[in-house]
């Protein structure tokens, strides 16, 4: 009974996410849409805590789970209530970073269970993807947050774009190597990949002008969506999968729409600051 009820709850949750996004894109229904999605999320969280089971075993450590939920809720509540209206975008960026970090931490914990056992390659692949995407999103969002509130200045040097691409390729190559050769001698490579992904996230956002931050936050937002979907693959969990992929797809489209509204192209935003074009000028002002 428990598990079938949970499946139904996840189905309801997925539908509320779709409805929520739909309603959020019309001015009249937007506020209600947000509440609909929030209700579905609450249902899915409560259902998971009490009904989830694996091989007939329920979840334990309830004290830790409720403790974390309580601390997170109170902090999030206060932060969201106190933030000034003008500082909203940077708050969104900060919360987005938290989601990315959450995905990365899930991967780290799951990897810890994996070492020394025979791991299925699919499992390892989703763990690695969740780690890399989550870390990039976390580090990038924190930098975007710092830029919007003026704590971090634009920083660009010659060859940064090429350096970034090389760093990304090296990270992906290390991940691919680990995927096919995981053993007790090279398990630490995972943590190097983690650090490299964090560094890449920082270097990716640093040169982009401050005025372009909303677009970058939207892009990182869709990254976190994909990282959440990796968790969905890992646990074969439909609500994480649909929620994550929906946000990944909608976020990517939204990023492009935002660029269009600014009469720019995405490539222009991402590498624009380097050519000394309008992006750099706008960036120094922002």
């Amino acid at each position: 009974m428990g598990l079938s009820l949970l499946s139904f709850i996840y189905l309801v949750g997925s539908v509320t996410f779709i409805l929520g996004l739909k309603m959020l894109s019309h001015p009249d229904t937007a506020r209600k849409g947000n509440l609909v999605a929030a209700a579905g999320m609450t249902l899915a969280i409560i259902g998971t805590i009490f009904l989830y089971e694996e091989n007939g075993e329920r979840l334990h450590n309830h004290l830790w789970i409720f403790g974390g939920l309580l601390i997170g809720s109170i902090t999030g509540w206060i932060a969201a209530k106190k933030v000034k209206m003008t500082a909203m975008p940077e708050m969104v960026s900060l919360f987005n970073g938290m989601g990315g970090a959450c995905a990365a931490l899930i991967s780290i914990n799951e990897y810890g269970h994996l070492v020394g056992r025979d791991a299925a390659q699919g499992t390892l692949l989703t763990i690695l993807l969740g780690l890399i995407i989550g870390s990039v999103s976390f580090a990038g969002s924190i930098i975007a947050w710092g830029k919007l509130n003026g704590r971090i200045k634009d920083f660009a040097f010659k060859g940064q774009q090429i350096g970034n691409i090389i760093l990304l390729l090296l990270t992906l190559a290390a991940a691919a190597y680990l995927l096919f050769n995981l053993n007790n001698d090279n398990y630490w490579l995972f943590y190097i990949i983690f650090v490299a992904a964090l560094v890449y996230g920082v270097m990716f956002v640093l040169p982009i002008g401050g005025a372009d931050m909303p677009v970058v936050i939207s892009l990182l937002n869709s990254f976190t969506g994909v990282a959440a979907a990796c968790g969905g693959f890992l646990y074969n969990n439909q609500v994480m999968l649909t929620g994550g992929i929906l946000v990944g797809a909608a976020g990517t489209l939204l990023t492009m729409l935002m660029c269009k509204a600014m009469n720019r192209s995405l490539t222009n935003v991402l590498i624009g600051s380097f050519g000394g074009s309008s992006a750099a000028a706008a960036g120094t002002k922002g």
């Binding site: 949750g13 996410f17 929520g20 996004l21 959020l24 937007a30 849409g33 947000n34 999605a37 929030a38 999320m41 899915a44 969280i45 998971t48 805590i49 989830y52 979840l59 789970i65 974390g68 969104v92 919360f95 987005n96 989601g99 959450c102 995905a103 931490l105 899930i106 937002n221 869709s222 976190t224 969506g225 990282a227 959440a228 968790g231 969905g232 890992l234 646990y235 969990n237 609500v239 994480m240 929620g243 994550g244 929906l246 946000v247 990944g248 909608a250 976020g251 939204l254």
Partner: peptide, 14 residues
């Protein structure tokens, strides 16, 4: 709003 929805990753954390 989309940012809040990808918070569904919390289920994985739980």
């Amino acid at each position: 709003g989309a940012n809040a929805i990808h918070g569904v990753v919390i289920i994985g954390a739980i």
